[in-house]
């Protein structure tokens, strides 16, 4: 049986093609201004990579913020459900899934089979999401990649007063004017986001192992800040940005069988 999972993220659309539980291919396309068109393109790229015809895919399940806009889908599943399912498929020992994307953050308490026990969400405010780090890297005039790396060079804890990304930008600029080293500013920014994510996750309870998924898990500065904040090393699964799509494809498999 062949299934597909589409994760309609705010910045990128991700597709995973599964055949009998094995990943055949993955694809990623920028969401852009026409998500449905980008999704179609991403899906086509993925099936091509898998060497199958789109018509041969038995069930397509979408997830992500724009999941209802995905073309040709048979069903959809929430971001929370997909992240839980995808993560536990790869790491059964995980009991807490932290999913941080460009525009939202989630803390999910899961069982070994991927069943969601509880979850908390921070959305619609850039303060607790990847967009915060992105805005600060722009204010510092460094690329997002370098920005995450930079923070690992710092051992200094500078508190940030501003909570809002817009106000924090001015704070970062004043730190620059005060000759604060960029790596210390970078750590302060990552610590600020992490502390907001940590207090959100504490509301569902933190049980080991803890996994971080979503686009922000590629940022080593954030992984470090989060691990320090949680006082436990967080695990980052392979291809963490595809976890939602993988979870959706797994759910598609179940739904196709029933």
């Amino acid at each position: 049986m062949t299934t597909a999972g589409i994760d309609m993220g705010a910045k990128y659309i991700k597709v995973v093609i599964l055949k009998d539980g094995q990943v055949l291919s993955k694809a990623m396309v920028a969401t852009g201004f026409e998500p449905a068109v980008s999704a179609q393109k991403c899906l086509e790229e993925a099936v091509q990579g898998a060497g199958v015809e789109l018509s041969a895919v038995d069930h397509i399940t979408s997830t992500g913020a724009g999941r209802k806009a995905a073309p040709g889908i048979h069903s959809d599943i929430t971001d929370v459900g997909a992240a839980a399912r995808g993560t536990t498929h790869l790491h059964q020992e995980v009991r807490t899934v932290i999913d941080v994307g460009a525009e939202e953050g989630r803390g999910i308490k899961v069982e070994a089979d991927g069943k969601v026990v509880d979850f908390a969400v921070n959305e619609k405010c850039a303060a607790g999401a990847g967009a915060f780090a992105e805005a600060m890297s722009r204010a510092l005039e460094v690329s997002l990649e370098d920005f995450g790396q930079l923070s690992l060079k710092s051992e200094k804890t500078i508190p940030m007063n501003a909570q809002c990304a817009v106000f924090a930008e001015s704070e970062v600029v004043s730190l620059v004017h005060a000759k604060t080293p960029k790596h210390d500013i970078s750590r302060a920014v990552h610590d600020a986001i992490a502390s907001r994510i940590v207090s959100m996750v504490r509301r569902v309870g933190i049980n080991k192992e803890v996994a971080l998924v979503g686009g922000v898990s590629h940022n080593p500065g954030f992984v470090d800040a989060l691990s320090r904040g949680l006082e436990t090393q967080v695990l980052v699964p392979e291809n963490p940005e595809y976890i939602g799509a993988l979870g959706a494809a797994l759910v598609a498999e179940e739904r196709a069988k029933s």
């Binding site: 850039a126 915060f132 990304a165």
Partner: peptide, 8 residues
């Protein structure tokens, strides 16, 4: 504009 957050 549907987003409250200035960034969004």
């Amino acid at each position: 504009v549907s987003s409250t957050c200035v960034v969004f």
